[in-house]
Design a protein around this nucleic acid. Structure first.
Length: 585
DNA sequence: GCGGCGACAG
C-alpha cells in the first residue's frame, strides 16, 4: 500500500487519488469476498468483479499488487482495472497506471492502447492520443475501428469537428478501417454539437445511400441537433424517417424530440408522443421527466411541473437533483423565494446533494429579488460544501452587487475570481463593462474593453449594446453613435434595441435632425422601429419634458399599428394629470 | 475476455 502510494505520488497524481488511507482491514475483507486468497496466484482474480472497486485508494492498491505479482495477471485484467479508473473519471491516474505498465513490461494489447488514447482525449489532449497511435504502429498493435473512433471523438472534443470529418473521409479513402455504427454516431454527434447540423444531415443522407447503416444513436444525435437549432419540423421528419428505415425510436429519441417540442410550446404534440411511447411499451425515465418538468418551469407553469413530479414519484422513479434544480429555478424566476428555499432544503433532507447549478439558481433568485445579502451568504457557503464556483456563479453575484450599486464590491469579486483561477468569459466582461459605465467610470470601462480584446474575447452584439446603453445614459450619444457606425466593420449588425437607445438619447438632447437621420438609416438597414422602439422613445421624451415630440411619436405609432405598453400608458397618464390643461388626449 | 456513440438543470 505504502509503496504504491509513493509511486503514485512520485507521478504527481496524489491529488487525484482521493482516499489513499483506505482501512486495510476493509481491503482484506473486500479481497476475501472476491476470492483473493493467494497473492502468488493472481489468476484467481480472473473472475474479479471490478465493480467492487469504487474508490481510487482501493484501485491503486489492487493495481499495485497486480503490477508486482509474478506471473503477471492477464492483459484483460489490467484493461479491466484501467477501465474502472476511467469510469471514476480519474484519467490522469489511469494514464499513470498505463505508464507504469509500460515501464514494468506488463501485458498490453490494442485495448490497452485504446483506453490510453481515450484518457488523453478526455483530458483534451488528442495530440497525445495520436502519439499513442504512433506507439501502436511501433509496437505492432494494429489500430482498429475503436482506436480511430476514439481519436475522432478526441478531435471533436478539441472543437475541430471539420478535421474529424476529414479524418473520417481519409479512413474511408485509404481503407484504414471499416467505419461502424458507433463511428457514424460519434461523427454525427460531433458535427451537431459543433454547430454543423447541416453537415450532419448531409452525412446521414450520404451514408443512407451506401451500405453504412446509421443506428438509433446517430438519429438521436441528429434529432437533438435539429431541435437545438430550432428546426423542430426537420427533427420530426427524421423521426418519421427512422421509423420508415426500420430503426425503432427508443426512450432517448422520444425524450429528445419532446424536448424540442416543449421548447416551442407544442404541448399537444408532446402529449401525443407520451401516449405513443406508452403504446410502444417504452417507459419514461428520469431524463424524460426532467425534460418535461424543466419545460413547464420555464413556462412558469409551476403547478403542472409539480404534478409531473408527483406522477414520476408515483411511478417509483426518484426525482434527481437536476429536476429539483429546475423547480428551484422556476420558483426563483417567479420571485417565490420561500418556495425555492423549501425545495432546496427538501433536496438536502432527501440525502441528495445540491450542486453548483442548484446553488446558482438560488443565488440568482436572491439577486434578482433584491435579497443580495442572502445571495452573498449562499455564495460564501459554496466552497464549504466542497463545490467549486464557476464563471456563472461569479457573473451572477457580480451582476447582483452592481445592480445594488455596490460597484467596488463587484469589482473586488472580479479580482477574487481571477485569483481563484476561475476564468472570466464574455458574460463576465460584459457585466463589468455595464457596472463601470453605470458607475460613470467611462475610461476604466474602455480600458476593460481593450483588456478583454487582448485576452481573446471579442465583444458580441450584447457587449456593444451594453456599451451603447451606458454611453447614452452618460449623455455621450456621439460616442454611442460612433460605436453603431463601426459595427458593420466588425461583422455585426446594429439591432433595434441599440438604435432605440441612441434615438431616445438624441431626442432627449434635442438633436432632432440627427435622430431623423438615424431613423432613416435604421429603416435602410432593414431594422424598422418596432413597438418597443416607439414605447421607449415616447417614455424617454416624456421624461425629458419633450411632450410635443412624444405626442408626434404616439400618433405615428398608432398609425403603424403598434400599441402603447402598460408602462408607457402609466407614464402618459401621469403626464396627463400633471399637464391636463396643456394636453388633450 | 478487455476498449469507442445518444437525451436533462444555469
Amino acid at each position: 500500500m505504502r509503496a504504491c502510494a509513493i509511486a503514485l505520488i512520485r507521478r504527481g497524481i496524489a491529488s487525484e487519488i482521493g482516499t489513499l488511507s483506505h482501512p486495510f482491514s476493509l481491503f482484506c475483507s473486500d479481497l476475501r469476498n472476491v476470492g483473493f486468497q493467494c497473492r502468488r496466484h493472481f489468476s484467481s482474480l480472473l473472475r474479479l468483479d471490478f465493480s467492487i472497486v469504487k474508490d481510487m485508494g482501493f484501485a491503486s492498491f489492487v493495481f499495485g499488487e497486480m503490477i508486482k505479482v509474478r506471473p503477471p495477471p492477464s492483459v484483460s485484467m489490467f484493461n479491466n482495472m484501467l477501465h474502472v479508473v476511467v469510469k471514476m473519471e480519474q484519467y490522469t491516474a489511469a494514464l499513470s497506471m498505463f505508464d507504469e505498465m509500460r515501464q514494468s513490461g506488463a501485458p498490453m494489447n490494442v485495448y490497452t492502447m485504446n483506453i490510453a488514447i481515450n484518457c488523453y482525449c478526455l483530458l483534451n489532449r488528442v495530440d497525445f492520443g495520436f502519439a499513442v497511435l504512433g506507439c501502436c504502429f511501433k509496437l505492432g498493435y494494429e489500430p482498429n475501428v475503436v482506436t480511430f473512433n476514439t481519436l475522432l471523438k478526441g478531435i471533436c472534443i478539441d472543437d475541430k469537428v471539420i478535421e474529424a470529418e476529414q479524418l473520417f473521409s481519409k479512413l474511408l479513402a485509404l481503407d484504414l478501417c471499416e467505419p461502424n455504427e458507433v463511428m457514424i454516431s460519434t461523427l454525427i454527434n460531433g458535427l451537431c454539437k459543433g454547430g454543423y447540423t447541416g453537415r450532419a444531415c448531409d452525412l446521414l443522407a450520404l451514408l443512407e445511400t451506401r451500405s453504412y447503416k446509421p443506428n438509433v444513436c446517430a438519429y438521436n444525435a441528429l434529432i437533438d441537433g435539429l431541435c437545438k437549432d430550432g428546426r423542430v419540423e426537420d427533427a420530426l421528419s427524421f423521426f418519421r424517417k427512422m421509423i420508415d428505415n426500420d430503426i425503432p425510436p427508443d426512450v432517448v429519441t422520444y425524450s429528445t424530440t419532446m424536448c424540442g417540442l416543449c421548447g416551442v410550446g407544442r404541448w399537444k404534440d408532446v402529449e401525443y408522443l407520451v401516449n405513443e411511447m406508452l403504446n410502444r411499451k417504452i417507459s419514461l425515465n428520469v431524463f424524460t421527466f426532467s425534460i418535461l418538468v424543466n419545460a413547464l418551469c420555464k413556462e412558469g407553469n409551476m403547478k403542472a411541473a409539480e404534478d409531473v413530479l408527483e406522477v414520476m414519484i408515483r411511478q417509483n422513479i426518484s426525482p434527481d437533483v437536476v429536476i429539483y434544480t429546475s423547480l428551484i429555478d422556476g420558483y426563483c424566476s417567479r420571485g417565490q423565494m420561500d418556495k425555492a428555499k423549501e425545495i432546496f432544503h427538501s433536496v438536502v433532507d432527501q440525502g441528495l446533494e445540491p450542486n453548483i447549478i442548484t446553488y446558482h439558481s438560488l443565488i440568482k433568485g436572491y439577486c434578482t429579488n433584491g435579497k443580495i445579502d442572502e445571495a452573498w451568504c449562499l455564495f460564501l457557503e459554496v466552497p464549504h460544501k466542497g463545490l467549486q464556483h464557476t464563471a456563472h456563479t461569479y457573473n451572477t453575484m457580480i451582476h447582483g452587487l452592481f445592480r445594488e450599486g455596490r460597484f467596488a464590491e463587484g469589482c473586488d469579486l472580479f479580482y477574487r475570481m481571477e485569483d481563484q483561477q476561475v476564468h472570466p468569459d464574455l458574460v463576465t466582461y460584459t457585466i463589468l463593462l455595464d457596472g463601470l459605465l453605470r458607475d460613470h467610470q467611462i475610461d476604466k470601462a474602455f480600458s476593460f474593453l481593450r483588456r478583454m480584446e487582448d485576452s481573446g474575447f471579442y465583444p458580441d452584439i450584447v457587449t456593444y449594446g451594453t456599451l451603447v446603453k451606458g454611453l447614452c445614459a452618460d449623455g455621450r450619444v456621439e460616442a454611442a453613435r460612433h460605436i453603431i457606425n463601426r459595427l458593420p466593420s466588425k461583422g455585426l449588425q446594429p439591432d433595434v434595441q441599440m438604435y432605440t437607445m441612441v434615438l431616445v438619447s438624441l431626442y432627449q438632447q434635442g438633436l432632432v435632425m440627427e435622430a431623423k437621420g438615424l431613423l432613416r438609416e435604421m429603416e435602410e438597414n432593414g431594422c424598422s422601429p418596432c413597438s418597443v422602439t416607439y414605447n421607449f422613445i415616447i417614455r424617454g421624451l416624456l421624461k425629458s419634458n419633450k411632450h410635443c415630440w412624444a405626442m408626434q411619436f404616439l400618433k405615428e405609432m398608432i398609425i403603424r399599428g403598434f400599441v402603447a405598453d402598460s408602462t408607457t400608458v402609466s407614464v402618459l397618464l401621469k403626464f396627463q394629470t400633471q399637464k391636463k390643461d396643456e394636453i388633450k388626449f
